[in-house]
């Protein structure tokens, strides 16, 4: 097996697996930010999602129940952000940080008895024999339900945001809440919905991380992926269509940094670990150099300038 084979064999599916939890969180945060709200609490929502999903799966033996529990838990935690930001007009950054810490603490406390529990989880959705197919065989054979769900959620959310009346209303609120109100929309209600939807999706991302991807619960296991998702929203230029390439870029770079080591690439591991961040920064710089800087919702700028 050559170095090239080792990198390519299973690389695509490994990139997809890495990108899956990130995609859920990223799509959710993109939709939230489209209405003019930033939620830094994503990291905490991922953690409670992961913890609750793992607990549910361990207790009932059904990973689907786990996904549902994770989604609900993420949404419940994001309700704190909604209440603070929309209800009391609290500073969005402070509120997001509070949600992050709350999620970290709650998941650590209630998750401590789950460490080391074993769960039965998803199997590949296609028969094993598919793996022998040339080129894409290993990718198709490695597909689990959460990977497929992550891939599907991208076009659904994009079409919904760009092609439906409610999507239009959400975008309008993000551009200018005043104008949206004048046009008959209720900005507060829409922002609450957007925060809760973001919470639901990030909870689902956490569930994918613990129940499907690692089949482990560990305190703080999201290891910064929530913050990365907040950053990748900019790389994806607040466009749900671009969330998947952005998540795949990051997940792919992460998978590559590990695979290059198994292929004896003889590159310093410290440099390899920078790869996902360097790649994201490079894309960000490239797209901004090419202009169209103003893809951020105008309402979001009000948050930044305040």
């Amino acid at each position: 097996m050559t170095a090239f084979d080792i990198v390519t064999s299973g690389f695509l599916i490994s990139a997809l697996r890495s990108a899956t939890p990130l995609t859920f969180a990223l799509v959710g945060e993109t939709l939230t930010q489209r209405t003019g709200v930033i939620n830094l609490g994503l990291e905490g929502q991922l953690l409670v999602g992961a913890m609750c999903a793992y607990a549910m799966t361990a207790a009932w033996g059904n990973p689907w129940l786990g996904l549902v529990a994770g989604a609900i838990a993420g949404m419940a935690l994001s309700a704190v952000h909604a209440a603070l930001v929309v209800g009391t007009r609290a500073n969005q950054f402070a509120s997001g940080l509070a949600v992050w810490m709350l999620g970290f603490g709650l998941s650590a406390y209630y998750g401590s008895s789950l460490v080391g529990r074993k769960i039965e989880s998803f199997e590949s959705i296609v028969p094993k024999s598919v793996a022998d197919l040339p080129v894409l065989g290993s990718v198709i054979a490695g597909l689990t339900p959460t990977v497929v769900l992550a891939v599907l959620i991208v076009p659904v959310s994009a079409l919904w945001l760009w092609r439906t009346r409610t999507g239009l209303r959400w975008r309008a609120v993000g551009e200018s809440p005043e104008d949206a109100r004048a046009a008959g929309a209720n900005p507060s209600l829409i922002r609450i919905q957007a925060i809760l939807l973001g919470g639901l999706l990030s909870g689902l991302g956490g569930a994918a991380l613990s129940v499907d991807y690692t089949r482990t619960w560990a305190e703080g296991m999201s290891a910064g992926r929530g913050l990365v998702a907040v950053g990748l929203v900019i790389v994806a230029r607040w466009n749900p269509w671009w969330t998947f390439p952005a998540a795949l870029l990051f997940g792919g770079a992460e998978a590559l940094s590990l695979r290059l080591q198994t292929a004896d690439a003889n590159v310093s591991a410290h440099l390899l670990h920078c790869l996902p961040y360097v790649a994201s920064l490079a894309i960000l710089t490239l797209t901004y150099v090419r202009g169209r800087v103003s893809s951020a919702p105008a309402g979001l700028r009000a948050v930044m300038d305040r």
Binding site: I6, S18, Y213, A218, E219, L258, Q261, T262, A263, A269
Partner: peptide, 24 residues
Amino acid sequence: TVVWTGGWLDPAKEAEAANSLIDA
């Protein structure tokens, strides 16, 4: 074959590192 994860606790990377090694 050594794979560095760059963190004492990052289950996702640990799982992926294990998968990469197994694939190799």
